[in-house]
Simulated scan of single mutants.
Amino acid sequence: DVKVNIDTGGLYVIEGFIQNYFKVIEASDSETIRLKLKIPYLMEKKSFKILVNASGVDIKKVAYSAKNSKTIPILPVWKLQIQKNITNPINVNSSARVDLKIKNTGLIDINSIELIDTIPKDFKLENMAEKNNKTILWNLNLTPNEEKHYSYFLKPLKIGFHNLPSAKAYWSRDGKHYSAESNELPIIVNGSYVILTKTVSPTIVELGDVITVTLSVHNTGNAPVNIRVEDKLPLNTELINGSTIMDQILKANETSQVDYTLKMQSLGRIKFPKPQKALGIADLENMAVVLVVNKTAPKPTPTLLSPEAVIKEALPNLGMSWVAIILLVVYLVIKRIK
């Protein structure tokens, strides 16, 4: 007398029985029970626990019981797969193509999907209408097993190792919101990246003074580059010495500089312009400013007078009595003796 009861955890039975009875199960023998359960359409992942209880008595009227369980996870009926790929590595002077593939691997239609990709820092969009946007948006619908492809081009602005963020998809169904995302992408940008810095010394001068201008270039990249810088002088300045041109091959991580001197010929705040040519330069920093002021008039040297001279100079202008004059003379004599 063996009774077997099965709890399906809420799954609907479409074939088989949840209550089973076996009159006799011989020693070392077994019986098999088969159930066919209907898998529900779910929008969220859910697990169902199948519980089996068996009980019976032997010929000696000894009771026995056993139980076991199995948890079955049921995946949602929808599933979006997003794959993101890019040309890797790339040169800082070239563009990289980004490819996106989105596929509905689920069992239902997914409509009104918003696929959004983010433009990473130190990159800019190319060949698209809104080049200054930080995100790109596509709207689409997908039937089961349908896939769509999108692509765009990125121009790197700096060399080095970068990480492209994942693309994300968003949609809603029955008042609930769902999302999926792609992989992130590492990318290496090779090439040269030269920074030009212009400094002056001193920064506050008088009209007609001479200052020193320094042009410094630093290749922060991992490749050599041929640079040519032709600096532009501010108005009302005169080149006194040195060269305003740099023309050389700059190796990776190499720094170089040139100096020249200028005579300042106008007053005010003089802002130095950008070079008229900067071949091979990726970035300009610290464009110089000089303040030119009027020359300071020299102060007269004071003349020390003797007491007698003081009295001589003072007497014509002293509108005082003879007593005051005599007292003044006595005072000056005593002071001179000391």
Rank of each mutant, 00 (worst) to 15 (best):
K3G: 04
N5T: 12
V13C: 03
G16L: 02
F17K: 15
Y21Q: 11
F22R: 03
F22N: 00
K23E: 13
I25D: 02
A27E: 09
I33C: 11
R34N: 14
R34E: 10
G56V: 02
A63N: 08
Y64F: 14
K67C: 02
P76C: 05
W78A: 00
L80Y: 02
L80C: 00
P89T: 08
I90E: 07
I90Q: 04
V92K: 06
N93V: 07
S94P: 00
K101S: 09
T105I: 12
L107G: 07
N111C: 00
T118E: 14
D122A: 11
N127R: 15
K134W: 05
K134T: 10
K134V: 04
L137K: 12
N139Y: 08
L140N: 09
K148N: 10
Y150I: 04
Y152T: 12
K155V: 03
P156G: 01
F161I: 02
N163D: 12
S172R: 14
S172G: 07
R173H: 09
A180H: 10
A180R: 13
S182K: 02
S192K: 05
V194T: 15
V194L: 09
I195R: 13
L196V: 00
T197E: 14
K198G: 13
K198D: 12
K198Q: 13
S201E: 11
S201D: 05
T212I: 12
S216K: 15
H218R: 10
N219Q: 06
T220W: 00
A223G: 05
P224N: 05
D231I: 06
N236C: 00
I240K: 15
N241Q: 14
K251N: 13
E254R: 08
T255P: 03
D259R: 15
Q265T: 15
P275Y: 00
Q276M: 13
Q276G: 07
K277N: 09
A278W: 02
A278V: 01
G280A: 10
A282E: 12
D283R: 14
D283H: 12
M287C: 00
V289A: 03
V290W: 01
V292A: 01
T296L: 13
P298R: 13
K299L: 12
T303C: 00
L305C: 01
P307R: 07
A309T: 15
A309N: 15
V310H: 10
E313A: 11
A314V: 08
L315P: 03
N317P: 03
M320A: 12
I325N: 03
V333M: 05
K335H: 11
I337N: 02
K338T: 02
